[in-house]
């Protein structure tokens, strides 16, 4: 940091302190405390799909990897190569060629958890960010029992084990910047599919 910039830090903090000096210092009101529904999984499905996300449940008779392979082959765009997040365990990987994220038909990730009230998938950066963002379809495993009712609870649990970045994905990529018409898959994945384990 240059001397001039060090000076800016002190000057800004001094001005901030001076501005607040004559003002009543109000207390923090505590947590917001949003409402809770009885069944977080059903609530998550409702909110996530209302925003354009898709939810599927894995088949019980097949292994997870076999089921995912069949599911990917059945998708409209006939996925032939996939990109897989570094933290996806072997049993959740499909039996398809692994290619670079920029060329993959689908990206496979595992969520740290899901959140019902916002319909969000919480994706840590240890899961390879390019996999979460570049392929046109994003498949996200949601581990069993990992659906929080409220975002506040999830962030409270996360705050002591934060990775360098977190992505909350709550819908496919969309924009209404052209003629106020909604289009999907603008920059990120055009389909976001949560798989409930």
């Amino acid at each position: 940091m240059s001397a001039a910039r060090a000076g800016s830090r002190e000057r800004i903090l001094e001005r901030v302190a001076r501005a607040a000096a004559g003002r009543e210092r109000t207390a923090h009101p505590g947590n917001l405390g949003t409402r809770v529904a009885a069944d977080p999984v059903a609530w998550f499905v409702k909110v996530f799909t209302s925003q354009g996300g898709e939810v599927v449940e894995g088949e019980g008779t097949l292994s997870a990897g076999e089921w995912l392979t069949g599911f990917l082959r059945g998708l409209d765009n006939k996925v032939t190569g996939v990109a897989v997040g570094a933290d996806v365990p072997a049993e959740l990987r499909p039996q398809l060629p692994v290619v670079a994220a920029a060329h993959a038909g689908a990206g496979i990730s595992v969520a740290w958890a899901a959140v019902a009230e916002t319909g969000s998938l919480i994706l840590p950066s240890t899961g390879t960010r390019a996999v979460q963002l570049l392929p046109p379809v994003h498949i996200v495993w949601v581990p069993e029992g990992r659906v929080f009712a409220r975002l506040e609870e999830a962030l409270w649990e996360l705050r002591d084990e934060l990775p360098s970045a977190i992505g909350l994905h709550s819908a496919p990529s969309k924009s209404a910047d052209i003629g106020q018409t909604v289009v999907t898959g603008v920059h990120g994945p055009g389909r976001c599919i949560a798989v409930l384990a």
């Binding site: 909110v47 925003q51 997040g85 570094a86 933290d87 009230e117 916002t118 319909g119 969000s120 950066s125 240890t126 899961g127 390879t128 960010r129 390019a130 975002l151 934060l162 990775p163 360098s164 970045a165 977190i166 992505g167 909350l168 994905h169 709550s170 819908a171 496919p172 990529s173 969309k174 990120g188």
Partner: peptide, 22 residues
């Protein structure tokens, strides 16, 4: 009018763990 933005990024710092390509 959305319950939350389609994407939220929460950034703490540079990539520092295995698997992170940030």
């Amino acid at each position: 009018g959305q319950p939350i933005g389609c994407f939220v990024s929460l950034i703490q710092g540079p990539a520092s763990q295995p698997g992170d390509d940030g």
